[in-house]
Amino acid sequence: MEKDAAHWIRLADQQRRSGSHESALRFYSRSLELDRTAVTGWLGQVQMLVQLGEYPQADVWAKKALEVFPQHGEILSAGAQARCRMGSLTEALAMSDASLARPGESAFRWLVRGEIIVAQGGRGDDHCFDKAQILDRDWLVPLEAAAACLFHKCPAKALRRAQEAVERAPSSPLCWYVQGDCQRRLGMESAATKSFARCLELAPEHLGARARLAESGGALGGLSRRLGRLFGRK
């Protein structure tokens, strides 16, 4: 059976939903190799590069994609996201403005707008994230909003979005993992432990959750041991 671009994009989406951004990036690239006129491939490639922290590369690929699809709203937003992560907020805002001015609406445009507002430390991010969730009921939208808030060191905002993602997709280990990460950063150790444990139940091979659980278990275990010694227990 011959594998076409749509097949690789499907695989990439699956990997993206499981949190394997590296594999997703490879599959998006494969799809692009077969069909360079598929905007999903270009967009996914840029989004995965951003998720992997390769911002200059994401910026370059966003520019390449914009040559093929001039003024494409989502690609403009993806470029804005890369710029935002590199700290060029003025340019990111300008690109986001341009993307929102394009006809049509999409969750990703509002997601990026919300992230830029979070990076600015301004208000109005809730409105943008809510708008994104209204436009797309997929659980990936609140989860990516949570990841963006976490990146910009706003774990309280991130937790709210992560909880929404968990409500929408309770069987997704990635949602539980991100929620646990938010809770851990907020100092909610027991809740974080439960979230990581749930993630491990759903995906026993999830290395991140296992490591986090070991960390929190080690810290708590150490503390309980010390308290036990303090009160004379061996």
Binding site: L25, R26, Y28, S29, R30, E33, Q45, M48, L49, G53, E54, Y55, P56, Q57, V60, W61, R85, M86, G87, S88, L89, T90, A119, Q120, H152
Partner: peptide, 25 residues
């Protein structure tokens, strides 16, 4: 087919630079 990736120098030094930029922005 191999997506472009950052070199070791960029991986080591650029995140700090971006973090500084994000604080300054």
């Amino acid at each position: 087919i191999t997506p472009p990736r950052a070199g070791p120098f960029a991986k080591r030094f650029l995140p700090g630079w971006w973090a500084f930029n994000r604080r300054l922005a």
